[in-house]
Every structure is written in C-alpha cells, then in structure tokens.
C-alpha cells in the first residue's frame, strides 16, 4: 500500500510539473484574470489529486482539461449567482443576509440548489420553486401559472425526482 500511495503522489507531482503552466494560461485566457486563474488552477489540481483512479488516466492532458473546464463552469455559475444575490439584497440594506456568514451560507446553498435544478424546463422549475420557497399550494400554483392542478403535480414530481437523481 505504501508503494501505491507514494507512486500516486509521484504521479500527482509529475502531472503538476508538466501541466501546471498551460492549465494556468488556459484559465487565464478564458477568465481574463490572473488572480482567478491561479485560484482555479489550484482547485483543478486538488480535484485531480483527490481522484483515486489516477493511474488509469490515459490522456492526462485531456483529463485535466476536462476537470479544469468543470471547475471553471462552476466558478462562472457561482459568480452569476453571487451577482443575482447581491442585486437582490441591494435594496434591503438592513437585511440580515448582509452579514458575511449569512451571505456565505446562503450563497453556498443557492449554488447547490441551482445545480440540482439545472436541466429542468422553466415551467417545471417555477412550479417547484413556488411550492418550496413560497409555500404555495398546488391549486395556488395552478392559478399563478394558469395551468391545471394535475400539471402542477406532474411538474413538482418531475422536479423532485430530478433533484434526487442529481444528488447521487
């Protein structure tokens, strides 16, 4: 076991040495920011390092690009959510959500939930959000969205199943 572990470490450092600079440049080009690119390069390698089947990777360059791309997409989405969030609380300067802790926790939850909802159609998403966030009943949602109650139930079931599958 010691041998496999140290050779895994060896592998990670080799990957790092060979791929660090082009990944960094790739991310800097995409993001236009040296600082963010450096952070995301770091995140990319942490992800690579935590994989246990690293040895089976045949095309390291493609593999790392794939991971870096995922890290970047997440980052962009996170920024988008943060922007929408700040926009939202801008008009409530007294809001308790201004504290850094509350902001961090709410943002993280928003991010996770947004990812869980990703891929749903606008109608399904809306019906689900109205039920979960506004606490509206099925018929209230039906009224709001001008659809039948049985459609609302289908939408909610669909959304819930989708989020459950995303968790796995």
């Amino acid at each position: 076991m010691g041998i496999t572990n140290s050779s895994a470490n060896e592998l990670v450092s080799q990957l790092y040495v060979h791929h660090h600079s082009w990944i960094f440049n790739f991310l800097r080009r995409k993001l236009g920011c040296t600082h963010e690119a450096a952070d995301l390069t770091q995140d990319t390698f942490i992800k690579v390092m935590l994989k246990d089947n690293l040895k089976e990777v045949v095309e390291p360059r493609a593999y790392i690009t794939h991971i870096a791309h995922g890290v970047m997409v997440n980052h962009v989405r996170r920024k988008e959510i943060e922007k929408a969030y700040l926009e939202c609380i801008k008009h409530q300067p007294e809001s308790e959500y201004y504290s850094p802790e509350a902001k961090a926790i709410v943002l993280e939850t928003l991010f996770q939930v947004d990812e869980m909802l990703d891929g749903l159609s606008a109608k399904v998403k809306k019906a689900f959000l109205l039920s979960q966030l506004e606490g509206l009943s099925h018929s209230e949602i039906a009224h709001e969205m001008k659809v039948t109650v049985s459609s609302v139930r289908k939408y909610i079931a669909k959304a819930l199943l989708h989020t459950l599958k995303k968790r796995d």
Partner: peptide, 16 residues
C-alpha cells in the same frame, strides 16, 4: 435545503 433559503432571494436568484 430549500427551506433554508429566504424565499424572495431564492425566487429571483434560482428562478432567473
């Protein structure tokens, strides 16, 4: 998870 999200914020951020 949804229950810890303030509803006004959630509707506008997640419902974008």
């Amino acid at each position: 998870k949804f229950q810890s999200i303030p509803s006004d914020i959630g509707m506008s951020v997640l419902g974008r």
